[in-house]
Design a protein around this nucleic acid. Structure first.
Length: 436
RNA sequence: GACCCGUUCGUCUAGUGGUUAGGACUCCAGAUUUUCAUUCUGGCAACAGGGGUUCGACUCCCCUACGGGUUGCCA
């Protein structure tokens, strides 16, 4: 069997992380089985559809790296892939229902007559679930065609899945109770239904239902906030699915290799940005220095910092210090700026050390005398200067760091010295010593 | 209200009758790095509650509580 999955969002807002995860699981399952991943846009709600929302779907999917095989921009043999263009298909299948006397008119709309019997589905994640359709309380005959002639979600969704030959429907658990309705439709059409897998929903950090406006709800926010798509994909995959090993850091390709619906759990997961940030850092560390510098550049520019020729080295020096790209500007600003600000706390610490002023002044002269400037020769000078003044090298490291960066933490001191160069280092040392 | 699904450290999770209940994030402490970060080691921290079944339940059954979902001429 050739596996065909689909992601079928409606363009009524931005791309939601819950939707993105649904898309991811469909993508992983299709790729895992060398199948086809279809992107279908369910734009039947004319009143709420917007072009921005359409674009957000494609942009979000592309950013995450979830490339689809059929749909927008790709074509395919089962189009059109926008429901708004498929009316003729729906009319055709609606006639089938009519001919079989499975629909009846009600106030101008058409309702589908459910068979009144228990419907059991075998869900790939939830197992067997039975809904009793003899209980009319929860299962009134559903409208499939509105009085204005348009068709409702349940109907078009089933017709599309059937015509597009979808074999596996992986969707959010909010659709679990819809599935018997869809099964009844398939049965009425005389068509074998696809297999279903309902994945648990994503909740807010406090356990409440995640909806629009909630932190982290929009996929587009992640790129703006400096997350890597690999980090977000990795995080989303681990929400409700697990590889049954202690490994956690995976690329998209590795996820494809390990993915299985059997390892999807059934309980909803909360959204913990802390772990997402950590995963992001793990993926940041996998980047080459050049790729890292390129990825961080927009954030450095946005912070108003000049991209000088020191930038590539500066970016490389802070690569291991950040979890998120927006942290980069503050981490390397002193390497790009001519005038640096000395932070209060480290300054106070240095002032506590009575010998600091003399030590730093002596170090400046020692630096000035170095012929072949490098991280090693500079660090050697620190050691010698400290010793000559009866201090330990470690005692001089911190004041030097503060003099050069204005901060208590940051890149390796050797890196800082090498990037700044001899003249700039001497200059900063002298000017700082004078302030003490 | 009715119906459906769920409930293991704060969070993500492993665990399918007998385990010192494991890992990861966060936090804390040590080590290493002559500095910072990384890294390493260690620590804190969980089976929602009550009944059964069983020699023995986190694991099976029932009830309760809590959470989520569905119950639209939204998708």
């Amino acid at each position: 069997m050739h596996v065909r999955t689909r992601f079928a969002p409606s363009p009524t807002g931005y791309l939601h992380v819950g939707g993105a995860r649904t898309a991811l699981f469909n993508y992983l399952f299709a790729r895992k089985h060398d199948g086809t991943f279809v992107l279908r846009v369910e734009d039947t709600d004319q009143a709420r559809n917007t072009d921005e929302a359409r674009a957000a779907i494609f942009d979000g999917m592309s950013w995450l790296g979830l490339d689809w095989d059929e749909g927008e921009g790709k074509g395919g043999d089962f189009g059109p892939y926008n429901q708004s263009q498929r009316t003729a298909h729906y009319d055709k299948w609606f006639d089938v229902l009519k001919q079989k006397d499975r629909v009846y008119e009600d106030d101008g709309a058409w309702r589908f007559r459910f068979e009144r019997k228990p419907i059991t589905m075998t869900d790939l994640v939830c197992g067997e679930v039975t809904i009793d359709y003899t209980n009319l309380d929860n299962t009134p005959d559903m409208v499939v065609r509105r009085s204005d002639g348009s068709y409702v979600f349940h109907f078009v969704n089933v017709v599309d899945d059937l015509e597009m030959q979808i074999t596996h429907v992986i969707r959010g658990e909010d659709h679990l109770m819809n599935t018997p309705k869809h099964l009844q439709l398939f049965e009425a059409f005389g068509v074998e239904p696809p297999q279903y897998a309902h994945i648990p929903l994503i909740l807010n950090a406090d356990g409440s239902k995640m909806s629009k406006r909630d932190t982290g709800a929009a996929v587009g926010d992640y790129s703006r906030q400096g997350y890597l798509p690999e980090g977000v994909v990795n995080f989303l995959a681990l929400l409700g699915w697990n590889p049954k090993t202690d490994e956690e850091v995976f690329t998209l390709a590795e996820l494809v290799d390990r993915f299985s619906l059997e390892n999807v759990n059934r309980s909803p997961a909360r959204f913990d940005l802390e772990k997402c940030a950590w995963l992001n850092q793990q993926h940041l560390l996998k980047l080459s220095p050049d790729d890292f510098a390129a990825a961080a550049k927009p954030f450095v520019e946005a912070a108003g910092l000049p991209i000088t020729d020191r930038y590539p080295a500066a970016a490389a020096a802070v690569r291991e210090k950040v979890r998120l790209l927006p942290e980069v500007p503050a981490a390397l600003d002193f390497l790009l700026l001519d005038e640096i600000a000395i932070e209060d706390e480290p300054l106070a610490k240095v002032k506590n050390n009575a010998a600091a002023k003399e030590l730093l002044a002596a170090l400046a002269e020692s630096f000035a005398g170095i012929q072949n400037w490098s991280a090693d020769t500079a660090k050697q000078a620190i050691g010698e200067t400290a010793q000559a003044n009866g201090a330990k090298p470690g005692q001089l490291m911190f004041p030097t760091r503060v003099a050069l960066s204005g901060k208590a933490g940051g890149p390796d001191l050797g890196d800082i010295l090498a990037i700044l160069g001899k003249d700039e280092s001497v200059k900063r040392l002298r000017s700082f010593a004078e302030k003490l």
